[in-house]
């Protein structure tokens, strides 16, 4: 996608993880997130975070990728984490002039740990999975066929539309357009989106006609001879033991 448009770069695909079946990656991410949500002890969550960081780096993500993702926090989460210790009811601890609520502080720490762990799990296991592989994996996981086809088409056309957006963006820059806080900027961006829609709609009509000529009736043959390998079993088994261990530790803690 053109520079100036994309708000962040995709993490690189990683050779080790790409040898796993897409289904295993999707289910692994879901299992990891579910386990993290079930953990209640900050100590166990911290341990999981250390383990998770280790695994993320081991999977081939650079420290910079991980840091960039974890630092990028939603604005409202930041507000939440600041306001919770200041307003939650309960016994307070004085910290200079401000009184911090103990339960609020505990809650904020728990949320902070869980949010970062889940983000790490998604970044490690899902990000970088080829959308086409994901589509096939979802089809094998019995996601409705129409939704899978929509997803596959969209994933394919995001790149095409992104290029189109890049061309429009270049045309704007050639005319010395600089986004500012002004009605002119908003109107220009609106025409940008509108023109993108018009071009995409016309492209869609051509694609549609071409597909009908080739007897498209709403479904493709999803040909992939993906079989679960021993590597998948090993990975799934290892992850299951790890997650079960964390749950057990959490019950004991």
């Amino acid at each position: 996608m053109s520079e100036g448009l994309a708000c962040s770069l995709a993490p690189p695909s990683r050779a080790g993880l790409d040898r796993l079946d897409g289904r295993v990656r999707v289910l692994a991410a879901a299992a990891a997130v579910a386990t993290i949500l079930a953990l209640g002890s900050p100590v166990v969550l911290t341990l999981a975070l250390v383990l998770g960081l280790g695994l993320a780096l081991l999977s081939g993500l650079s420290g910079r990728d991980v840091a960039a993702r974890l630092v990028h926090m939603e604005g409202f989460l930041l507000v939440l984490l600041v306001v919770l210790p200041l307003t939650a009811p309960g016994p307070t601890i004085a910290l200079g002039p401000v009184a911090l609520s103990q339960p609020g502080l505990d809650h904020a720490i728990l949320v902070l740990l869980r949010v970062n762990l889940c983000a790490l799990a998604i970044l490690t296991l899902l990000a970088g999975l080829e959308p086409v592989h994901l589509g096939h994996a979802l089809a094998r996981l019995k996601v409705p066929a129409k939704l899978v086809h929509l997803f596959l088409f969209s994933a394919r056309y995001v790149a095409v539309i992104g290029e189109e957006a890049g061309r429009l963006h270049e045309a704007l820059r050639v005319r010395a357009f600089r986004p500012r806080t002004s009605l002119h900027t908003l109107r220009t961006l609106a025409y940008f989106v509108g023109q993108l829609l018009v071009r995409a709609f016309e492209r869609a009509e051509r694609v549609d006609e071409a597909m009908r000529c080739r007897a498209f009736a709403g479904r493709f043959a999803l040909i992939a001879d993906a079989r679960l390998t021993r590597l998948d079993a090993l990975f799934a088994g290892g992850l299951a033991i790890g997650l079960a261990g964390l749950l057990l530790l959490d019950r004991l803690a």
């Binding site: 086809h149 929509l150 997803f151 596959l152 088409f153 969209s154 056309y157 995001v158 095409v160 539309i161 829609l197 995409a200 709609f201 492209r203 869609a204 009509e205 694609v207 549609d208 597909m211 498209f216």
Partner: peptide
């Protein structure tokens, strides 16, 4: 195809 392209 049309819906997917608009979604994109």
């Amino acid at each position: 195809p049309k819906t997917a392209i608009l979604a994109a």
